[in-house]
Design a protein around this nucleic acid. Sequence first.
DNA 1: CTGAAAGCGCTTACAG
DNA 2: CTGAAAGCGCTTACAG
Lengths: 340, 340
Amino acid sequence: MKREGAPRLIDVAEAAGVSLASASRAMSGGSGISPEVAAHVRGIAQQLGYEPNMHARGLAGGLVPTIGLVVHEIGDPYFSDIASGVIRSATLENRSVQIAQAERTPDSELAQVKSLMRQRIGSIIIAGSGYADSQREQRMSDALVDFTLAGGRVAVIGRHYLPVDAVLPDNHRAGVSVGRHLAELGHRRIGVVAGPLELNTVADRIAGLREGTDEPGVELTVVSQAFTREGGIAGARELLGRGLTAIVGLNDAMAIGILSELRQHGIRVPEEMSVVGFDDIAVAADVAPALTTARIPMFDMGQHAVSLILRPASDEPRTIATSHELIIRQSSGPPAPVAI
Amino acid sequence: MKREGAPRLIDVAEAAGVSLASASRAMSGGSGISPEVAAHVRGIAQQLGYEPNMHARGLAGGLVPTIGLVVHEIGDPYFSDIASGVIRSATLENRSVQIAQAERTPDSELAQVKSLMRQRIGSIIIAGSGYADSQREQRMSDALVDFTLAGGRVAVIGRHYLPVDAVLPDNHRAGVSVGRHLAELGHRRIGVVAGPLELNTVADRIAGLREGTDEPGVELTVVSQAFTREGGIAGARELLGRGLTAIVGLNDAMAIGILSELRQHGIRVPEEMSVVGFDDIAVAADVAPALTTARIPMFDMGQHAVSLILRPASDEPRTIATSHELIIRQSSGPPAPVAI
DNA sequence: CTGAAAGCGCTTACAG
DNA sequence: CTGAAAGCGCTTACAG
């Protein structure tokens, strides 16, 4: 019998000679169905080109296949690269992705996650760094556990302390690499323009820096600013006149701001001051001078997050560790004889 | 009577003393209901904190409030800035946004739009430049008209020839400004590294450049490459040795690639070669040398597109024109005595 | 303009 | 493990 429009689950069920209920269980990967029947139904579904109606699923109490991605700010290259990786992988898997912006405020982040859940979205990827505020993270943790119990899939980028799958940026070791690079060049008085100290990303990178510069005579001066180019500018301003020979920005946006501020003051990089960043966003190679930075594979991290989401849930949270690469360009060199 | 969970439309209807059907018409802005009743129902809904269940709507044949945004590539700053504007405005209006990537292939763009429609998404914003291929655009046009007829809202960025609301980037006049700037500086042999010629954005900017350089003795040499940094590099390579004193990249990514290639060859900018871009993406100010470019307000364009979507449909497609601003930085100057 | 009723395509107790 | 049935919360002909 010919039928208008897309095939429905009932069509699949009929073609497979099973009940609607069984077909549903076969497609939703639910338990309570024999593997043979499930495989058979899925085969028929494939043949018929069946695509589940997400609204029917959502209404009936199921979860829809859409992936919700929570970022701090999509205009930030760090997040847009992650988003690009997520969308690329999701599209290959025929999944839609919905993006929510937390605008860099932690409460809004939780609100976005809850809004995603309310929409019965089946998978959530949280790309933003976690916060050190344990009360807040506890509330996030509670929400995610509830969601997981209801069949939702979650992957976070960073935030290994949350009881969900995670892809781990190599922040600590990247910090070590940067610190060691500077220390080996001979820098002793090093400034750090950090983002908000309550961000785990910031804490991890700073800890790495400390470890990498753990030599006699090395002194780190840390100031905290917004995690943006403007924050970098403000931080550089704070740090000038403190007798430093190098400044590290805790992300490339900040480092670029630092570069800009130093240029304003006519301070030559790297002759008078070395500058190093984190992430290796696309333009890091093109700023003046080209930025030395610890590359974090944002795009890949996005793809990894999707791969975690796609696997069925397991008892133990899983983790995908990523690596970093120190990219040495023109903005770092030996310290000047006279510090600034 | 207390009730678990969120209020449903039936709860609103009861509280307002009307039928479910009337409540539905009041909320969905449909016709066939008196303005007084509609206002009353909406008041009650507001009071109760009613939020429509999008899955029920979608299932029942309505359109869901989600905004679908189609970009070429979210990792490209041009698009991530637009996306940021879209998401910002959408969030304020309590609307979700779903992003689809067309990966710079026109067929995929149409496929993405159709997929959005299949999901019963009520609003679609197409951010990518249109293509000169009229057959292809005809198919897109047909799809969008059907969608509009079914109550969907569409806004495109660029593509004024499509029968839908549009926000218009100031591409032509930006081209004029860039062309005039170079001509006034005294450049006569100017290279242009264009993106794919079938992109309207490219055509408009080139037309503007021609108009702005329409003086005796000025000659434009145009080559076409991918609309990316790598395209800029390849284009610069093609253009070297042709006796030019200036090269314009048709977007900043290309211009930055051009800068990079010139640096490889030891050609000083702007002393030996001027370079100008389009868009003013965030890093244009930080590359070496700082890039002269025609600023296009991507973030605002995203917000404008949402504002178009939010207005009820009208008979005539509406249009929001935007402006540009020529930002003169260090990458442009008078021509060198000896062209390259 | 207003209302009663059918139906959208699923999932999930509830029985067996 | 399998199936019959109820129900999720809306929209939209169909009547009036």
